[in-house]
Nucleic acid binder design. Sequence first.
DNA 1: TTCCGTGCAAACAATTTGCAATAGA
DNA 2: TCTATTGCAAATTGTTTGCACGGAA
Lengths: 151, 151
Amino acid sequence: MQPKVANAFDQRDWMPEEAAEALRAHGCRVTLPRLAVLRALIEHGGTIDATQLTARAQCYEPGIHEATVYRTVKVFAEVGIASHVHAGHGPSLVRLAGNQQLVAVCRDCGAISPVPGGAVDQLVLDVESATGFVIEPGHFALEGVCATCAR
Amino acid sequence: MQPKVANAFDQRDWMPEEAAEALRAHGCRVTLPRLAVLRALIEHGGTIDATQLTARAQCYEPGIHEATVYRTVKVFAEVGIASHVHAGHGPSLVRLAGNQQLVAVCRDCGAISPVPGGAVDQLVLDVESATGFVIEPGHFALEGVCATCAR
DNA sequence: TTCCGTGCAAACAATTTGCAATAGA
DNA sequence: TCTATTGCAAATTGTTTGCACGGAA
């Protein structure tokens, strides 16, 4: 089911072999727990929190510990495989680095909705030219009320 | 979830007497610890985390406990006196309800920069018409790198 | 063989909650 | 009075870290 091939880091699908190369290129080892986390991220495809990610990774590597998942995600972020998304009050989220989709978290039901691309670009430019602050839209989530809960 | 209180007060400064009225109108008592938190918020003027807010409130009410500050902030939010701002990885912030200024938190130094008003309005409209998701710009912070750290 | 990475437990940080004592209306 | 509110300590939740063992290179 996993589509073959992907270009470097800006592609959405991270094939395990490419990620393994990225790890080795940074002097990190390729281990079963790390591959399990990677597969879980690929399988899920979107933004996911550490607990759910651990549960999914355990399908591939049953004994994997949540602390290991946290450490793995940190390494993945340093190596450029994955990145963090800070959501509102809940736990922070993880996703593959290729996925820079801005998301919005519903304050009532916690649902994660993708935000159409492009809407943010102008904001980023405006803020940078006005204040010099460089917004990184992939690293935080918007908050509000989703269409369902708004009613 | 919580009904949005009439915005009659949003555009002015919160004087202690007005806040006291808002509390009584909701059947809440006006206590010294609550007034201390209110004064600390007014004195500070911006967004502040619970620990710093407690420290400032202790100038007015020395014995006030941090748990009380958390509970007070929750009541203030329900009554419409204050609101939460969820910042990146750090603790969440509080401010007076009239202050709906969007802020950006630097991922390197943690500095909180105000974002010029209006920059977000288009984003809010775009996202709502495209997805029905209603973004609440006052309740989260943008993340990125501030002008100083960008160099 | 060499260390890096892992599991585990324990530490930590932010926040919430149970309970008895206190103080506002 | 009567009960919301407080202080305190303890529980929760999300995340990080110290340590000894096991496995990748």
